[in-house]
């Protein structure tokens, strides 16, 4: 086919192919430049930032300095809030994965009355906006004394992470071949053994996708932590948010802080692209 194309159409194809490449490169730059701007801004002194644009470092590379990062890591508010982010994100992710797996398995393979209705009820909760729960949960947490604590933030994230977890895992577990489960059962496996030795390993791809999705969701959250944490339990997003009102004056905290807060999600993203994509695709209803 290719060989029989006329010279003209091949020429046109070549030109449009060239245009296409140029277009995609321009768009790609469009997408990269904002992040590069943040990175280079974080590597300049505040006086330089106030005087000129970040692209100045291309002509004056001597402006690059790690001072802002050094100061940031000596700033105890920032370091403790980074730790808080970890203390919030890790439990919130593990709990959602474990509790979601238990329920997903029950919905997929156990018999009990009204099973499908219960499951549909959970599916209905998928799109409930977190905003609906902010005020009621703030009052509830106030009463039981977890308002302002890491525990409160974790609980909220677990609650709103569960519908998606149950939905995703139940659908994945349901695809496990029945024979595998029966064989394990015939070998005398009990309920827990079956769950931990057969279902969890076979469901690993879905569990990984869910885990990464939930991890990024919680790590990147601002709104929930803004309401349910206090100055001692706030994650990095909230700590940085308090500096935004004086944007120009605090740029030496905001730029490196934002970049540090991005490092972990970006590392996770590049390391687990495939799982992340499948999590995002399954989450298209959330």
């Amino acid at each position: 086919m290719k060989a029989r194309q006329s010279l003209g159409s091949r020429l046109a194809e070549g030109v449009s192919g060239g245009l296409l490449r140029v277009f995609l490169i321009v768009v790609g730059l469009f997408w990269l430049v904002p992040t590069i701007g943040l990175l280079l801004s974080s590597l300049r002194a505040p006086e330089d930032i106030a005087a000129s644009g970040w692209w100045k470092v291309f002509t004056e590379p001597s402006q690059i300095t790690f001072d802002s990062y050094r100061k940031l890591l000596e700033n105890e508010d920032i370091t403790s809030s980074l730790l808080n982010t970890v203390w919030i994100t890790v439990p919130a992710t593990l709990l959602v994965v474990i509790i979601g797996s238990l329920a997903g398995y029950a919905f997929a393979w156990m018999e009990f009355p009204g099973r499908d209705w219960w499951f549909l009820g959970v599916v209905g909760l998928l799109v409930v906006p977190v905003q609906v729960a902010l005020i009621p949960i703030a009052e509830l947490f106030g009463k039981i004394g977890v308002f302002g604590s890491v525990l409160g933030v974790v609980l909220f994230h677990v609650g709103f992470g569960l519908p998606f977890a149950v939905f995703l895992l139940r659908n994945f577990f349901a695809e496990i071949p029945r024979e595998l489960l029966e064989a394990a059962r015939l070998d005398g496996a009990g309920e827990l053994r079956l769950f931990f030795r057969v279902v969890m390993p076979l469901g690993a791809p879905a569990i990984a996708a869910l885990g990464i999705f939930q991890f990024l969701w919680v790590w990147n959250d601002l709104l929930v932590a803004l309401i349910f944490s206090d100055s001692g339990s706030q994650p990095i997003t909230v700590a940085l948010q308090t500096q935004v009102r004086q944007f120009g004056n605090n740029i030496d905290v905001l730029a490196p802080g934002a970049f540090i807060s991005m490092v972990v999600p970006l590392a996770v993203f590049f390391a687990f692209q495939r799982q992340f994509v499948s999590g995002v695709m399954a989450g298209a209803v959330k």
Binding site: P34, G37, N220, M262, V268, F269
Partner: peptide, 17 residues
């Protein structure tokens, strides 16, 4: 890639932009 980062970080990025 921007999907992986927080809206807070994206917000700071675009305040600069």
């Amino acid at each position: 890639m921007p999907m992986a980062i927080s809206m807070l970080a994206a917000g700071i990025i675009f305040r600069l932009v």
